[in-house]
Amino acid sequence: MHVKSQRVFTRLTQLKELILESDLFIAEYNLDNIQFVQHAEDLLIPDGKSLSDLIGEKKFRKIHKIIEKSFKVDLRQFEYYLPLLIVNIIGEAILTKDYHLPLDIFLWNFAKESEKELDGVETYASQQQIMQAIKMKDQLKMVKDISKRPYIYRKNILKMAKWYEEESINLLYKNGKKSLGKYKHILLKKRNFIMADRFEELTLNQKSFMAVGAGHLAGQHGILKLLKDKGWKLKAI
């Protein structure tokens, strides 16, 4: 999970040891670009619009009040961001912030400090194309749905964190697939094929460590199954 909570850092010591044994560290994309990404124009609603412009000031004030009360997130700070990013920001706010960085960036920095080769199974550009494929009305619906049932969204995030701690990758996959609805093909299945192909390409001649979102692992089109289909022998550590 791309969060800062202690709940996803439970295997940190073991992960560091495995990274030190590896030649290459692979993330979803090159995380050295993270500072650029956080301020990139393509993370903003097009044409300089804001969330209140899209849904109306009255409705925005109502949603803002609910989100702030439920999650301590001030939507005014993020109203120019794509609604999809706002959903992620709200999700992160539910969990504790025990570390100053999300797990994947934390491990990336450790690998970098350990002078490991670094790469990504996707590119930032490809992730942007995926976000742009999600219609604005559907992104707005995600934010509206959270404001209608904030307790349900909180419960779901906490449930996912629990499954992560328990290493229940099948439950994480099923939950992710269900929540993505009609976008599960482009957000999950299509990306899994890209990740598996790229991982095989990068790791042919070196020992590698790959850190991607846990929802990509399980399922008939999950990375683990795709690698098995390619002839890889997989073993849980």
Rank of each mutant, 00 (worst) to 15 (best):
Y29V: 11
L84D: 10
L107M: 06
K148D: 07
I152E: 13
F106D: 09
K189I: 12
I237Y: 13
G215H: 06
K49G: 00
I146S: 08
Y124I: 14
K162G: 03
E166P: 00
F193V: 11
E165N: 05
S22M: 08
D42K: 10
Q129I: 02
R198I: 04
G91P: 09
L188F: 07
F36V: 00
L44P: 01
Q14H: 09
I94D: 02
L188E: 12
E92A: 15
Y80D: 13
L118R: 02
S208T: 11
Y29L: 03
I26V: 15
K162W: 04
L31G: 04
I63P: 02
E113G: 03
Q128F: 12
V212H: 06
K137M: 11
I94M: 05
L217H: 10
K207G: 02
H39K: 14
E92C: 04
Y29Q: 03
I34R: 01
Y29C: 09
G213A: 07
V121Q: 01
D32A: 09
K228V: 03
L75K: 12
E165A: 08
Y153I: 08
V87S: 10
I94E: 02
L84P: 00
I34A: 02
A236N: 13
L140P: 09
L103S: 03
G219L: 06
I86Y: 07
I89E: 11
E115Q: 13
Q139F: 10
D138C: 05
D42G: 00
K16C: 07
I105M: 10
L95N: 01
A161W: 07
A236Y: 12
F110L: 08
N205T: 09
E68S: 11
N175Q: 11
A196F: 05
A133F: 02
M136H: 06
M195C: 01
Q206L: 02
V87A: 08
H185I: 08
E92M: 13
P150I: 04
G181A: 08
R11M: 10
